[in-house]
Write a protein that binds this DNA or RNA. Structure first.
Lengths: 137, 137
DNA sequence: GTCATTGTGTAGCATTGGCTACACTATTGT
DNA sequence: ACAATAGTGTAGCCAATGCTACACAATGAC
């Protein structure tokens, strides 16, 4: 048959770039930690995401290659301008989704939890619809 | 430091079981193909998800081990009772999310696309809130 | 100053989900 | 019947995200 997948649009998105989602989660977390306590270390992220420090180290290595994060060995992490911009975009979207869930009657704890998973799958159009709903209602 | 991750609840969900999401996507697709054309082959899934038939074969192998799918070599795929129940649950949740997105003003194509990604991150409580919204409005 | 604690790094492994290439089975057409 | 086409299977590769175990660096206590 030899692989003639062609259109199938709509499903591409579902399968696509989990790594990009991870990047967003991480820069968002780094920005948040920097805001909270002025410093962000590998361990902080390991605790926040409930993974080992090794997993964090690996992911950070990728983020460095992507030009989102900078740091020297044994030194705290910093975001590049690019990283900060991504973190900002991500934070805003996350916030909108969170507030939207609250607005439709979801309890805070659940909204906080669900919004983390949902935010990465919300297209600009859907995000706009949520914002519209918040402004209107 | 030795890994004393403990609470971090709310993030567990975000990281958790991508494999389970895949299982849901696949049984849902299988059920849908069976409903549409009475038969479901590996190629059908490969086309639907826009991946190679090899990827499908591997995932199906896992679903068989999990007792969701049955099939003999070179034969079409079938769902076990368990698989059908999972497909059903998944389909309903998906449908609710889709209709909800339409209800807040998202266009059909976008709602179809976004609902695929979102459905796996919607907790029972949030799903209930969406349903509530649909019934009310 | 030295030692314990805390934080990083590195090696090596597993699983999931991708792929190409190639071999095999089944179905269809004439 | 038998070749072409369509569908499956298997081998072997890769990247991403997990892990444990161990080594090394930096910080704090006293």
């Amino acid at each position: 048959m030899e692989e003639f997948r062609e259109i199938a649009v709509g499903h591409r998105r579902t399968r696509r770039d989990h790594a990009a989602e991870t990047a967003e989660d991480y820069v968002e977390a780094i920005a948040s930690l920097l805001a909270e306590k002025g410093i962000c270390r590998v361990v902080d992220l390991a605790r926040r995401f409930d993974v080992s420090h090794v997993t964090v180290t690996k992911i950070i290595a990728r983020l460095k290659e992507s030009g989102l994060v900078v740091s020297e060995p044994y030194k705290p992490l910093e975001l590049t301008d690019l990283g900060q911009r991504l973190a900002n975009k991500s934070r805003k979207r996350h916030q909108t989704v969170y507030e939207f869930l609250l607005a439709i009657g979801v309890r805070e704890a659940v909204a906080a939890s669900d919004s983390e998973g949902i935010e990465h799958h919300v297209s600009p159009e859907t995000l706009a619809a949520m914002q519209e709903f918040l402004n209107r209602d």
